[in-house]
Write a protein that binds this DNA or RNA. Structure first.
Length: 439
RNA sequence: UCCCCGAUGGUGUAAUGGUAACACACCGGUUUUUGGUGCCGUUUUUCCAGGUUCGAGUCCUGGUCGGGGAACCA
């Protein structure tokens, strides 16, 4: 390009070059070094390359048009000197190309026919083409499309970096991050992400996709594939008064009602169980299907139980619920004729495994965190809730990283690849189940 | 001020110039031993003004609104 008179070395400072640039609507002025001969330019460029120039002392510029309507075409910088160590060439090479100069060439070298990028590079396309023509190389073609934006989060790598650097999140793979590693740790399957991408489509206008579409994609995939298990996140005691003390029995339950091939497994039942604190309330209305004084519910895959009594601590918190079970109401062999409205999940107290469970919520309170002011101000302070002392069914002792379970009535959960250790499992909630209850 | 791009329900995405549709969301009903799933249904859409045409979301002109555009950043 220097030989063709399409590039020249400029000795001016960055400030001087900027002041000659003009403005949108106002043409720029030529550099006083613009008309150097090819020989001189070549010699000076060799000096830059040989490390004989200070940083900022000289740059190589494309000779295009300082009055061009597109600011990017006003003699953009091609190479500048930087004395930084490169991870491959070490300190041997001290001139670094600008993005616009390198972009088309890297595409061209790889014989990329269609180079796709995001909308903000539309203004760069004329320059991309100009370089390819000036260098007379394989003509890759740049086409711009809209970036996929999601509400209640941010997608910019530079902004995400701030969350990592300022310790707001656990790292790039924090399960709240909209990164591949984050989604993976969260429990998102590759299939669900592909379906999501298909549903979103591609276009050239700015968009903001509703996160609920992402969540739906995961639920849709996992509903068909995830084994169901029982886990109690906020356990309180559930005592079956009329069940013989010391007795236990094994009950059969299907692994996935959506997939017969998934088979069945056995779960232990006994007199002392754990139930979800949220599933009992003292004062209720007719919309309440769960346990309460006077109410009857089905214990999932087990028996129908009727309320008998409950115990509260000094703060009025319910710590224990007592019920009586209906012996001939056993799941699959129910001859009781009783039709309770609600079904509760539970875990046998003496055989439950302890686990930590991490509940994730959206990272930001605002649908558009960048809308007004600093996105850091829009952070959701409750995006992570850590629950300890959760009770999970015995089969979960053998859970593997990578498999996603449905905790019955709660949502989809997977073992955390970072904090989980043998003997003290940590589960991440990938997504909740859709909750139709409007209590 | 100038240049580039865009505009279809709440959110996205479709529709050789020929009946505007699909998904998510929302709301309602139904089924259900997960208030999950499934099934059925309601509501809601072509930015504006002209023009071309038998006929315009689509083509033309003008406007409005939105996004992008000054780095020795990518």
């Amino acid at each position: 390009m220097i030989g063709k008179g399409l590039a020249y070395v400029d000795d001016q400072s960055a400030e001087q070059i900027a002041s000659q640039k003009g403005a949108p609507g106002t043409p720029g002025n030529n550099s006083p070094f613009r008309e150097r001969t090819a020989e001189e330019n070549l010699r000076l460029f060799e000096e830059m390359k040989a490390g004989q120039c200070q940083e900022g002392e000289r740059v190589l510029r494309a000779k295009i048009d300082m009055t061009h309507d597109n600011m990017l075409m006003r003699d953009p910088v091609i190479y500048r000197v930087k004395y930084v160590e490169h991870h491959r060439t070490g300190n041997d090479w001290v001139i670094y190309p600008m993005y616009d100069f390198a972009h088309g060439q890297s595409d061209s070298i790889e014989r990329i026919s269609h180079s796709l990028c995001s909308l903000e590079f539309e203004n760069h396309r004329p320059l991309y083409n100009w370089f390819i023509q000036a260098l007379d190389i394989y003509p890759s073609e740049q086409t711009e499309f809209a970036r996929l934006n999601l509400n209640y989060t941010i997608m910019s790598k530079r902004k995400l970096l701030r969350l990592v650097e300022e310790g707001v999140v656990d790292g790039w793979d924090d399960p709240r991050m909209p990164t591949i590693s984050g989604l993976r740790r969260r429990g998102y399957t590759p299939e669900s992400i592909r379906v999501f991408a298909d549903r979103v489509g591609v276009a050239k206008r700015n968009n903001t996709i509703d996160v609920s579409l992402l969540e739906w994609s995961l639920r849709d995939d996992l509903n068909r594939r995830a084994p169901r298990v029982m886990a109690v996140l906020n356990p309180i005691r559930l005592v079956v008064l009329n069940y013989p003390e010391g007795q236990t029995e094994m009950l059969t339950t299907v692994n996935n009602p959506e997939d017969e091939a998934a088979g069945a497994r056995e779960i232990p039942f006994g007199r002392e169980l754990w139930m979800e604190a949220d599933d009992f309330r003292v004062d209720v209305n007719k919309k309440w299907f769960r346990l309460a004084p006077g109410r009857t519910v089905r214990l999932k895959s087990a028996y129908i139980v009727e309320y008998a009594d409950h115990i509260e601590d000094e703060h009025g918190n319910v710590t224990e619920v007592h019920v009586n079970y209906i012996p001939n109401s056993r799941s699959g062999q129910d001859t009781s004729g009783v039709k309770p409205k609600g079904t509760l999940h539970w875990v046998a107290a003496d055989q439950a495994e302890d686990a930590e469970v991490r509940l994730y919520d959206r990272l930001f309170r605002e649908a558009s965190p960048e809308a007004d002011g600093d996105f850091m101000d829009a952070l959701n302070p409750n995006s992570l809730e850590i629950l300890k002392g959760c009770k999970v069914e015995p089969s979960l002792a053998h859970a593997q990283v990578g498999t996603v379970f449905q905790f019955t009535r709660l949502g989809y959960f997977t073992l955390d690849s970072k904090y989980s250790t043998p003997g003290s499992p940590v589960f991440n909630r990938a997504v909740t189940l859709k909750d139709g209850w409007k209590g």
